[in-house]
Amino acid sequence: MIRYLATRGLSLALSLLVASLVIFLVLNVVPGDPARYMLGMNARPDTVAALRAELGLDQPAAARYLAWLGGMARGDFGTSYTYRTPVAGMILDRVGVSLPLALYALALSTAIAIPLGLFAAARRGRAADTGVMAATQLGIAVPNFWLAMLLVLVFAVRLRWFAAGGFPGWGAGILAGMKALTLPAIALAAPQAAILARVARAALIETLGEDFIRTARAKGLTGGQALTRHALRNAMIPVLTIIGLQFSFLLAGAIIIENVFFLPGLGRLVFQAISQRDLVVVQSVVMLLVCAVILVTFLVDIAYVLVDPRLRRT
């Protein structure tokens, strides 16, 4: 177990290093001049020269890469060119919105998908199963921004249960913050839940064909008991894989939803930074997202081991 974690941890650190190198190369080295790119076509040569000095572009690439890595290790992500504030602080504020939103959406999606998958698997081939499958098909097909606007129309404009957008900040209290995130979380979770429910159903149905399910039934378990006590855990591996992928997507892929609800999240930050050509911010946020994805993959690996004792030996 410890050896397994150590090996996984080492490969995780290596992936991070490779990712940082790729990001650095793509944004800084090839091709052309980042300073000229950030300032646009009509910049005056002395402005470009000033920015080059500020970004340290006169240094060799290897030195810049090491300085960037060293800075990140100290928590110094550089200074945003557009906002003139430290990038670390900006990102931290945005993560305070995006991370809770992603976790909220993921919790919702899992809480909907697993029972739905169980329900459909228990009634496979019957009308209820067909109905659930049709609903999930719809859930995947409906664009989440459309769903978001629908939610705003119904729950904010008509019923006035929620605000139509914006985020009060965690200073206003946890409940107020959660309330502001509820509609966006639902809009994000719905398609994810639909995908996850289908994966869960398929995995469960495959597991239900296994011999040990027949053994469980022979012991006197009802079909439902065999499903929840024996099939569910055995079907968790593909479900965990999808949950891991979904979390990475939710963290970074919420740009449209953040825009619909005027949420100050990471997605919007990247979007703005890209449109303002603020490479310092883009580079840092991308690196952070890569970190998050790799970390989630690591957590999913640990979850596999917790679920399946057969993996503990190696």
């Binding site: 040990f212 024996h230 004792p309």
Partner: peptide, 9 residues
């Protein structure tokens, strides 16, 4: 099938 008749988890 003794190999598959027991729940592996």
């Amino acid at each position: 099938e003794p190999m598959t008749a027991l729940n592996p988890l």
